[in-house]
Design a binder for these strands. Sequence first.
DNA 1: AACTTACCACTACATATGAAGTGGTGTCAA
DNA 2: TTGACACCACTTCATATGTAGTGGTAAGTT
Lengths: 191, 191
Amino acid sequence: MRQNPERRTALIDAAIEVLADQGARGLTFRAVDTQAGVPIGTASNYFANRDALLTQAGQRVFQRLDPGPAVVGEALTLPRTRESVDRLMHEMVERITAFRSGYLAMLELRLEATRRPELREVLTKQIRDNVQENIDFHLASGMPGDADTVVMLYLSLNWLILERLTLPDVFGEDRAAALISAAVDQIVPPQ
Amino acid sequence: MRQNPERRTALIDAAIEVLADQGARGLTFRAVDTQAGVPIGTASNYFANRDALLTQAGQRVFQRLDPGPAVVGEALTLPRTRESVDRLMHEMVERITAFRSGYLAMLELRLEATRRPELREVLTKQIRDNVQENIDFHLASGMPGDADTVVMLYLSLNWLILERLTLPDVFGEDRAAALISAAVDQIVPPQ
DNA sequence: AACTTACCACTACATATGAAGTGGTGTCAA
DNA sequence: TTGACACCACTTCATATGTAGTGGTAAGTT
């Protein structure tokens, strides 16, 4: 098992692209090698088997989806209004939508998780923590709404993103943007 | 190309199971033959290629998810209250969740649609019509809420189902059920 | 400066899996 | 007897995996 961390990360990122492009079943050592532009056999030297590749890709997607301290810090300076929530939700959806391959890879992994208990555990923990973080942050920020509000936004906006990334013409570009605001309007309680 | 319609339907239903079990990439003629319990080569005699199998599976899932006149008729006898909406949503989620393989197959097809324009068109039309039917039905039923209400329920409950079917332990069984009601509470306007 | 050790990139091979398609045979019914 | 279908076998092709082996480079040692 090789150690070089940059190369390792590059391979995992390549794996994410492969997942998005070709699906979970298309994720092979060779496909990752090709995507990463490294010689055949390299990925095989870095990961014991496909499972390792899958779980590490799952973790990496979350790592890359993390908004980072800049965004979080900025959010805390906003007034505690529904308008601020609206703005934050737009930002979040755009940020996630922009990482198309990551989101699609995540969906592939979810489906793969129905067949692989180990992967399922890893993903369950990640998602659970992620939801909880969102709830904690929302409550700490003093924005209007409770834990259920956050969960509802999580549910509806996730499917909205899925819809945009898989069947963009179901709702058009504009309608999808309007639906973000509609979600906030309906879900976040008046102050 | 063979004609026998029962056998054809049986093969498409087998394809749905294969999609759910093994993913889009696992959908091969042989896998369908095996799943359907027919001799190798049969599916190949009924469908010109994989694309035909995929698109027909997509249509079939919707066909099988259709609630049927009994449910629709009953819904129209309900009082026009938020409680009725709550009940209908529970029914719908249960009905869809019960057809696990169909829903998972649908998700596989969505992801596959990112790579296949033809499939994408078919699915886009199906989903669009489906959403529109839901809106029309809701408005015709006189239940509280407008078109946006229906869309929001569509978004949030779909992701809730996805969560239950792929990572059931993120929200437990009970919490998931409670979230259906929470969605209705937050999204359907007071009367 | 020469030697040693460890790590890594890359290549190549042995093996396995499984898919597609086609053509042929048997069977039943009109 | 002719046509449609079910079933089966064989060929061809494509692609995966895991591992062994080769050579290069960098760092530390004597």
